[in-house]
Design a protein around this nucleic acid. Structure first.
Lengths: 336, 336
DNA sequence: ATGAAAGCGCTAACAC
DNA sequence: GTGTTAGCGCTTTCAT
């Protein structure tokens, strides 16, 4: 990499002259500016990011901590974060906590050594289960703002971007009730997560309001064989004619399992699930989907963090943004 | 963040004494070392990463450029890279090229400003189609080594980690032939990619060797409705009793479509596809899968790059590592 | 209009 | 055993 020093030497001017010329300072003569810029162009000069960061005490880099990059939703949020951050002139350093509290702490620690200006993260499963939040608070105290998305720690004072999970399943359940479904079941492999609990409650509320059916829950552990669990559940509960799925694959598996058992979807059973467009087509018929607008969530989180970084002096109150889900009617429910 | 300066002041010693003490230099007295370390501990001192980078002219950071984070395979490689890099003391800055040549160039450019020590990347689709490679060469010339994985540019002299795509489909096709399948078709939505072409050739070779059937190809464009395309293909080609899928979703869709058309899998038709474990269960029966060992590819790429970074002076020859795929027999083929 | 110098936080060669 | 100094690349204040 070419440095200001080298340019200065070659042009027989001082380093500061070169710096000013490149930064369009009024102080420098027209002719000099031209010569400097020409040479800089020729050598493809780029200001050294590290030196800038040191000087200005900010890195224009965001630390992103994702629990699980193989989760389509989380990956899509990351996509949204990256795009928005890039647009606003920031880079992202990505760490994957792998749902582990320890790894999450570590990542936060390591990046708090001056590598980043702030964090965007979704809380790891283990962290949510143990309800630990000190590491978050510590980072914030150190002057590194955090934006949490989707899975948040409510007791940490920081900006948040969340989904209206409760409403989403409440409304989805209402939708199946409107189809006159007699026994709607709830299938979840994420009951440990804050969002999993919210989704469950939304479903339960809608069911209890009917006063005509009771909640039926199928909870799947990650080590279970999802296909078998769901298939045997459907076999044993022949009266189930509607399914709300809380995670991204149970809905798809449920459809395929139902078809496999000789049921017609949606004639005999309707299914609604959280899912992405690309996964929804893995089911025949295509899964009616609760869309979470993952990219928008990521973009929103990036905006919030960068806004805060650029207005640190103002000390604004923390905000929570709720991104509304939307229901995409495909063929696994009766169309309206 | 606490600095050496502040510690030095509080302890009434010089900055360099503190620095040496913390770095376990032999020069410093036992007692001093103890005092320094205690205070550092108390204030949770962490060496400023940016200052270190500037001083040592290396960032211990790797730039990773991924074409599409929503692709499960690529996401998993990223996972592998992150894990291995972290283990070896490196951070990763992630950019997403979104399959665009322009974005890829930009990312390479921006990160070449001193932000990273080298790159790990898979070439964007557009880049492969236009066969542009100057931006890669430029980065390498600037002293930033590149490791390419999966989708590589053969004309760039750099380390590579690739999959034995040709062999994978060749062998998979042979496997279906051994089941005595009379007409095996090849379904692909990635014919533009280098790996897509290799997979196609592997299939074609195996078919031509039989001298009993001709290759039958279904090529899907990304804007097509994949479900419809595959379903109507199966309807029109009733003699097809075997399918090799080149991408990660066609195989799953094919199984579900076949079942939907009243066929029994694998009695009437066998299917093999590239896929991950978590996607394979979206099909009933579960898809027999060509596993690419994405995490291993990522780890290997990280190791290669870091090895090179730590031995830049040696100027070692570039290497290409081939990671063998393996076939996981599930229920969409006749078990051996 | 141009340059010298200080300083961001750190390490290390070189005094003492 | 401890301190001084220079320097990584850059911006910026303050001379000239």
């Amino acid at each position: 990499m070419v440095t200001l020093k080298q340019l200065a030497k070659e042009l027989n001017v001082s380093i500061s002259t070169v710096s000013k010329a490149l930064n369009n300072s009024e102080e420098i003569g027209e002719e000099t500016v031209r010569r400097v810029k020409e040479l800089a162009e020729l050598y493809n000069y780029k200001p050294n990011k590290v030196a800038l960061s040191l000087k200005q005490n900010k890195t224009k880099t965001i630390g992103v901590i994702i629990p699980n990059i193989l989760n389509h939703f989380l990956a899509k949020v990351l996509f949204g974060i990256e795009r928005e951050a890039t647009k606003l002139g920031y880079n992202i350093i990505t760490c994957i906590s792998n749902e582990s509290l320890e790894k999450e702490k570590e990542s936060l620690q390591i990046l708090a050594n001056g590598s980043v200006d702030g964090f965007i993260l979704a809380v790891a499963q283990e962290t949510q289960m143990k309800n630990e939040i000190d590491h978050f608070k510590k980072a914030i105290t150190q002057g590194l703002p955090i934006v949490m998305f989707d899975r948040v720690a409510h007791d940490v004072m920081c900006d948040k971007v969340i989904v209206d999970d409760f409403d989403a399943t409440y409304n989805a359940t209402k939708g199946l009730l409107a189809e006159n479904r007699k026994q709607i079941a709830f299938v979840s492999s994420i009951e440990d997560l804050s969002v999993g609990k919210l989704r469950e409650r939304g479903y339960i509320k809608a069911i209890l309001e009917t006063q005509k059916q009771d909640p039926v829950l199928l909870k799947i552990k990650s080590k279970d064989d999802h296909q078998k669990k769901i298939k045997s559940f459907l076999r044993k509960n022949k009266n189930v004619d509607g399914i709300i799925s809380a995670d991204s694959s149970s809905g798809i598996i449920a459809i395929n399992a139902a078809v496999n058992l000789g049921k017609k979807v949606p004639r005999d059973i309707s299914v609604i699930g959280f899912s992405s467009k690309s996964d929804a087509i893995h089911a025949f018929p295509k899964l009616t989907t609760i869309r979470q607008h993952a990219k928008a969530i990521g973009a929103e989180a990036a905006q919030m963090l960068i806004h805060r970084l650029q207005n640190m002096h103002l000390n604004e109150d923390v905000k929570t943004k709720i991104v509304k889900t939307s229901l995409v009617n495909n063929k696994s429910t009766k169309a309206k």
